[in-house]
């Protein structure tokens, strides 16, 4: 395989993996849009939702399990909003961020308590054999996953641009007090944002679960969302997609072409290296809004 074909295959692999990173990053974006807070619990929500799904499948079958998992994630989101976050309305973002850390620990512990620590497979019936285009191999299941990610993003964009609640979310992210003063119900909008984040976590958990299995380590994948958000801009849905693709491609090409010169293992470093470059040249990300504050 020549270097060009290798680079093309790595780039395609990177784009497809990057879209999966975007799925996780989307959950962070949703909460940030509603509360200007980085939701540290998004990874734990992904783990919890996927574990719930695979835990229910043997009991009630896939489709009922999926419905059950959606409902349970709604309950988790509502309880989290009601018990942990509603009392913190008006608190500084740092306080709310600390609460999300607490929620992450609770969800991880609770998930292990209910569903155990054993790993599970999650088969979605996606084709496993590669698509062969000349000398290039492309994963069919990754293509489908990328398609799912694309549809979800399109739906979210429509939701934020054209629905009343979506506009409410954007208004609250911009200025909580001003939004409330024009009659936007902060509690209702927050609850919807958390439900949406829970739903996105479930979809991300399914796609990642079918790829790497469903197990505790899944929550660590969420860490990849950080460079994605730095690059794309934390409050931007298209930013999550573009950031994810940049991270995926940088990782794949870095591992393939820089790795051999430094002993390999640069995949994870690449994501943060690119994020660092963006922090230096465009600290609010490609699609992020520059915040101007009086100091």
């Amino acid at each position: 395989m020549n270097d060009l074909a290798f680079a093309v295959e790595l780039t395609i692999t990177g784009v497809l993996i990057g879209l999966l990173y975007s799925m996780i990053a989307l959950g962070f974006v949703l909460i940030f849009k509603a509360s200007s807070v980085f939701n540290f619990a998004q990874g734990a929500m992904t783990l919890f939702s996927a574990l719930t799904l695979v835990g229910l499948i043997p009991l009630v079958g896939f489709w009922l399990a999926l419905v059950g998992a959606v409902l349970i994630m709604c309950v988790v989101a509502l309880v989290a909003e009601r018990v942990a976050f509603r009392p913190l309305i008006g608190s500084s973002p740092l306080v709310i961020f600390m609460a999300t850390i607490g929620l992450a620990y609770i969800l991880e512990g609770f998930a292990q308590m209910v569903w155990g620590t054993q790993p599970h497979g999650l088969k979605l019936g996606l084709p496993v054999d590669p698509l062969k285009l000349g000398s290039i191999f492309i994963s069919k299941s990754d293509l489908i996953s990328a398609g799912v990610a694309g549809v979800l993003v399109a739906l979210l964009i429509v939701f934020f641009q054209y629905t009343k609640i979506g506009l409410g979310l954007r208004a609250i992210a911009n200025d909580q007090i001003a939004a409330q003063s024009v009659g936007i119900d902060l509690r209702k909008v927050w609850a919807i944002a958390w439900i949406l984040a829970g739903f996105v976590a479930l979809v991300a958990g399914m796609l990642w679960g079918s790829r790497i299995g469903v197990h505790f380590a899944m929550s660590l994948i969420a860490l990849k969302a950080l460079p994605v958000l730095i690059i794309g801009g934390i409050e931007s849905i298209p930013g999550a997609i573009v950031g994810g693709i940049i991270v995926g491609v940088a990782e794949a090409l870095g591992e393939g072409f820089i790795g051999p010169y430094v002993g390999g293992g640069v995949q994870d470093v690449m994501a943060y290296l690119v994020a660092l470059i963006f922090l230096l040249i465009r600290p609010y990300g490609i699609f992020g809004q520059a915040a101007i504050e009086r100091v």
């Binding site: 290798f6 295959e9 692999t13 002993g263």
Partner: peptide, 24 residues
């Protein structure tokens, strides 16, 4: 040849493309 993976080593796609398609 070695393909080191940073902990927790859950993303191995680029390494496997290299192993199977370039290093053969």
């Amino acid at each position: 040849k070695s393909w080191p993976l940073a902990w927790p080593a859950l993303e191995q796609s680029a390494a496997w493309v290299d192993i199977a398609r370039r290093f053969r």
